[in-house]
Every structure is written in C-alpha cells, then in structure tokens.
Design a protein around this nucleic acid. Sequence first.
DNA 1: GCTTCGGATTAGTTTTTCTTATCCAAAAAT
DNA 2: ATTTTTGGATAAGAAAAACTAATCCGAAGC
Lengths: 301, 301
Amino acid sequence: MKRSMLPLNALRAFDAAARHLSFKMAAEDLSVTPAAISQQIRSLEEFLGVELFRRTNRSLVLTEAAQLALAPLKDGFEKMEEAVDILTASHSANVVKVSVSPSFASKWLVPRLASYYERRPDAIVKVNATMALTDFKAEDIDLGIRYGRGTYDGLHVEPLMRETVFPVCSPALLEGDDPLRTPEDLLEKTLIHDDSFSEDDSAPSWPMWLKAAGVLVPEGLPALHFNTHALAVEAAVAGRGVALARSSIAEEDLKAGRLVQPFGEAIPVDFAHYIVCPEDKLKAERIQDFIDWLKDEAGAY
Amino acid sequence: MKRSMLPLNALRAFDAAARHLSFKMAAEDLSVTPAAISQQIRSLEEFLGVELFRRTNRSLVLTEAAQLALAPLKDGFEKMEEAVDILTASHSANVVKVSVSPSFASKWLVPRLASYYERRPDAIVKVNATMALTDFKAEDIDLGIRYGRGTYDGLHVEPLMRETVFPVCSPALLEGDDPLRTPEDLLEKTLIHDDSFSEDDSAPSWPMWLKAAGVLVPEGLPALHFNTHALAVEAAVAGRGVALARSSIAEEDLKAGRLVQPFGEAIPVDFAHYIVCPEDKLKAERIQDFIDWLKDEAGAY
DNA sequence: GCTTCGGATTAGTTTTTCTTATCCAAAAAT
DNA sequence: ATTTTTGGATAAGAAAAACTAATCCGAAGC
C-alpha cells in the first residue's frame, strides 16, 4: 500500500496494542481512552480486511498475520523517531518548556525571566500557561511548576517555595465610613474568592482563613468568584473587595501601593510551589540549569 | 521523541514535499490541496522548532537538518508500507474492490454476482456504489465501471458494453382515456428525467431523444426529476410518467412486465459502459479474472 | 453469588485536516 | 517593459478523524 493511504494513527494504535497485548495499556501508553484504541483497531481491521487480534473476553491474542507485520512496523516507528530526533537535536539543547499556572506565569515567572536570559543568553524558555496539570506522556513539556500538596505520582518532585496567604485590598477600603480594621470587619466587605482549587478542601481559602482567625461567618456574605488567582487579585486592586492573596501573586501590587495588607494574619497552608518533571528530564543539563536558577530566584524571594 | 507524540500526518506531508521539492507536487502525490501541505509543513516546523525548507518564492530548498532526517524518515515509511503489505498480502488475493454507480450496482452488477461466486467461490467482491468518479490515487479501489464517453486520462480504459436508451412506462399508461401510442403522445404525459449527467450535454436525455424522434417540444411540460437512473425507472414502474431508460437498468422490470416499451425508438448514444482502472492493477490475476467475467456477462447480455 | 475487569459499542464532542478563496512576489511569456 | 502565470502563504469555514463518556457484556477473581 502506498504511503499516502497508510492509516498512520491507526497503525500507531495497533503498534501499541500489539506491544502491550492490551487495549487498556495501549491507551495509557498513547494517552487516550481504551475506547479510542478499540475503535482504531476495529477500523484498521475493516480497512485492511484482516483480523489483527483475537479477543478472548478480557485479553487479546495477536493473529499470525499481525505477528508477521509487527517487526517491520516497529522498525518503521523507530526510524521515524530517529528522523524526528535528528530534526530536533540541534535545537533542543537550548529550549526549556515549562508549564505553570497563568497567574504564576504573569506575576512571578515571566517578570523574572530576564534574569535567566542574562545567565544564559542563548536560552529559549517556552512558557505554557495553563491551569491543568501536565501529562508528561502526552505533552511536549520539560517541567512544570505547580501549586499544590506535592503529591504527583511517578514524577520527580521537589519543593520550589512555600508561601503564605493573607488578606489584601485596595487602600481605599481602609478609609471612609466603613473602614477595614479588624478581621471581624471583613464581614462587612465583599470577599473575593479564587476558585482555582475549589474542589480541594485543603487548598487555602476564605473559609479556612476566617476559621483560623476565629471569625464566625454567617450565611450569605457578599462574594465575588474568579477562576484564577491573578483575576481575584486584580479585583482587589480595583477596590471590589478583599482577596486572600498569595505573596507571589500580589507582591508587585503590594510594592506599588496598589494593594495593602490590612492585618498581618497569615495562615499556615499545606500548599506550596513544586517543581515537577519526569525523572529522565533531569539528565538534560539545560533542564537542571533552569531548575537551579528557579531555586536561586525562589531563595532570593 | 516518543512515537505517541510523532505528528504522523505532518511527517508524511514533509516526506512528500521533500521528495518532490514542491508543495504542489506533494499535494498531488497525497491527493490533497497545496494549502494542506503548506499548513502541515508550517505546523510541523513550529512543533519541532526547526525550519525544514527555505522558501525562495516559487521553489523550496531543504535545510541541512531536513536533509539529514530524510533517509531515516523514508526508511520509516518504507517499513510501514512493508508491514501493511504483509497484513494485506494473505487477503487481497481474493478481494476485488469495484466502484460503480448505485443504479448499475443494484440493477445490473449485484444481481449477477452469484454467477461470479460460482466461478470463483473464494472471491470477495466489494461493491462501492457511488456516483463519483474514482480517484485511484486517493481511494482503495481496484477498478470502476463507468457510464460515460470513456475519456479517463491516465487510466486503462476498455469498453464493457454499449446500450440503448428508450422510453419505458407502466402498462397502465397504454390504456384509459389518454393512451400512450406515439411519440407525440408523450407531450400529454409526465416526462421522468434522470439528472445524473445533467451537466453533460452529450449524455442521453429526453430533449435529445425527442429531437431525434422529430417531436417538437413546447415549453413547460410536466416533469419529474431524479438524481439517479434507478429512481427514475422506479418512478416509471409506479406509473408516475415515462422514463428514458437504459436497458441495463430497466431489464428486470421489463421482463417482469412492470414496465413496457411503448414504442421501439432507441437512439444511438455516445455514452457507454467502460471498465476503468490503473494500468498496474491489470497485473493482478484476480482483477484480470474479474474483468474477464464482466466481459462474459456483458457479452451474454 | 457478587464484584471487578477489560473489551465493545454508540452517541456526541473535540480536534485535526482539509478546501476554498485570496494574496503575494518572482519567473516566464509576450 | 508589461502582462501573465505559477507556486507558496494564509485565513476562514467545512469536513473528516479521533476522541470521550456512558453503558453493556462476559469471564476472571474473590
């Protein structure tokens, strides 16, 4: 069959299924669902007019034809990997692809990148700003910086920095007829919530902070909700209410006087920033160097 | 790069473009538009972070990295072709994939296939019923049977059978207050048109037939239109009017008495049935044998 | 006998790939 | 020197492919 007609994606599914003798494991390998593999194999069998697997309920057996085809197919994929590795080899020595949350990207990482480029002028840092965790098997990402509890299975994890969370607001809220002076005064203000981790009870939040401060909270307080931390902090800068801010996100606004910390109560939180990457990425000097720089920056912070 | 992340379709575009040093020719090779190739290459360059071609207005030059990657990539595709050929080898010896119009499929070819299976019990004939011509570069089709003028560039073409077209109608239209007896009587009936070839003035049609019969046609005759020949003939069986039928399509209804030929005028037409296939398909014994059988059936017809 | 597991399938969603239309600049033709 | 032709670039929208979610099934495991 001419290469223009080769069903390449289905052949990749077949290759994975044949290697694992399992659609479930092939799916994990290729970062798709078992249904996707099943459908690809079925479609390939129909297209080629040949059975590739015999299904015995929960397991698979390769047919004879499939067994014969496996060796050249594997060789084919290996040659393609080699070709792509050749293409990228001259380039990737200087590229670091890092995944961080949008808030952390704009408020902490990107403002500091100039310092990394001074340290390594030929470097290229590609920042992937996303709120999703990285699936390193499916995404072309070198490392991630994640705010959480640090429980990332199967990956190299090291703490980058811990930080506190505390109320911040516009200086305007400290004045006027209803000034914000004590934690109890918060009940008269609009609380600005960051819902990034609303599904995780151990994530820092207003209810948690208020409880730690010993403030009894009645029902139905005025509230604003945002899906990123930076947006919540922006709303505070705009005088919309009081946000519970992380220092890394709020630092520039605090320094500039756009935000103030009305009272000093910072609560201890379980969450911290972690560097996350596949173990084998650490072998690359450029990754190791970037991590070293991150730690330097976090230490100086 | 691991094989789960290889952009396989883009690599195929790259392979073709590199072989031809032309997006236009690569597009023809892969049966897509040049825009598709251009977009795939651009996307691949961005994804890999490496330039593959230098564009000098109307021509392409491979970059050094691309030149180095070409040999393993070509090997990769060759291995995959080999694998797929192994998969299909044991099967395709008995399979013939034939593309015909839906009308011809249902009225002529499929009713006769039993005779082919008697001749060759292990055969598998896959009938692709479509009104479109076959693009043999893009479609997995062995041969086509097409009604037309036989002008199919770059392909092996041989006539299968010529046939006439003539009016047919339900026997009921020959009776009653307004019996159909002469060509002039057609003007009192509903003409049933097959619009399959309405864009081709040389295709057989009612205007052509009436002109040959010397019947002057006024404006605004009652008419029915269908997009396949078989549907037009079905409407005639239902007594909806008079169709201009091809013998291959109408033969069974005529034999069964569901249709009659009110008058014998059959006009000569430029169109005929042709067998069409790529030259190299003729090397396959199973294709040659199928063609031989088709000719036998058409000769006996 | 009940629970768990992995494959099968359908329907709907998302992503990828493609086509169409238009633009551009240089080569080719006049 | 001017006009025409050509092949690549790009954007918008359409079509096709690939995927996910949900559900079902039957056999293995408990």
